[in-house]
Design a protein around this nucleic acid. Sequence first.
DNA 1: CAGCTGACAGATATCAATATCTGTCAGCTG
DNA 2: CAGCTGACAGATATTGATATCTGTCAGCTG
Lengths: 196, 196
Amino acid sequence: MPPTSEILTAERILEATEEVLRRHGPAKATVVDVARALGVSHGSVYRHFRTKAALREAVTKRWLDRTSESLAGIAADASRDPRQRLGDWLAALFEAKRRKAGDDPELFATYMVLTDENGGAVAEHITDLTGQLTRIVRAGVDAGVFTVADPAATARALFQATGRFHDPGYHREWELPGVEDEFDAVVGLLLRGLGV
Amino acid sequence: MPPTSEILTAERILEATEEVLRRHGPAKATVVDVARALGVSHGSVYRHFRTKAALREAVTKRWLDRTSESLAGIAADASRDPRQRLGDWLAALFEAKRRKAGDDPELFATYMVLTDENGGAVAEHITDLTGQLTRIVRAGVDAGVFTVADPAATARALFQATGRFHDPGYHREWELPGVEDEFDAVVGLLLRGLGV
DNA sequence: CAGCTGACAGATATCAATATCTGTCAGCTG
DNA sequence: CAGCTGACAGATATTGATATCTGTCAGCTG
């Protein structure tokens, strides 16, 4: 009895896993659930992902990559001046994370569990994001608007100094009144620090 | 059978509670344990603290206050110029937290549980610290070394931007090689942003 | 014969019965 | 009689017996 006659792909498994995680939450989502959602035996899932942990890591990576990709456009937009590009990029990062946390708190909590499990995927994500920041900073140095010795180190510092506005650990504070002003105060100070 | 003939005070209970927390950890430390350590019945403990939660909050406050007090000296030291005072204060805060986390990881984990339980005490602690920072910033403005519109808002921004180097949630990263440089990069950027 | 199934062993989670703890208070004691 | 005790009821945690899940693999099927 094949309910879906399509062939089973890693992609289809990832989609089904996201759905199961959304429905059951991270604690109760099992490989058997994923297999049932796809109308196959759980043995078939193990044909595409060696372990449950590997499956969850792949889901985590996909989720993180979606954010990175949405920011890459701003980082690469050479039509804006670097100072404004930097401000826009940081604001867009904040806004993206805040929307994810605010729009569907349960799903966000699920992904917080997943990111805790998968330090490796998170590290890659952070490397990716600081890479984008480095490109903006370097553009600013080349344009003569930023005075900075080591663009990569400065990019890391910028990322870390704004952690309160993108690190999921702070998500509760993103809905408090005044966060916008706090964000502006921190970013303002940092932009001034980049030199004229 | 009175093992200690001294009268029972809130202070003695707090000391015993710290010891029990150190020994048993936050999950297993009970009021009965505290009473046993003092050689009294647990009813006597409830004569000084209305609930177990109130007792744990008092222990938490004491612990946080010890850090605040150690920094107050630097904040008040008018003999150093504000720029250096600010750098020293932030470095001392980082160093204090890092030592607490590194010297006795288990005890630190215990206090992380306690601070999670007692958001109120933590909020007071943060108000206290940003107050100290505000005084330094204001001194800098008065001395003409900082160009800042709202010292209190700037103090909050400085505190938040350096969160990675004092927020217990980041304690794992405080032992990584290169944190010192990261700290210097962030603080350097912020100090530059305060204006000449 | 490539891809899938389902029975299986060991690991992990669930659940209900039992034990311990929290918070109260009437009464003891020095 | 101020301060403490210890028995108690209800709430919370622990335990161990049971059920479910993970990961494997020999063999089925189209």
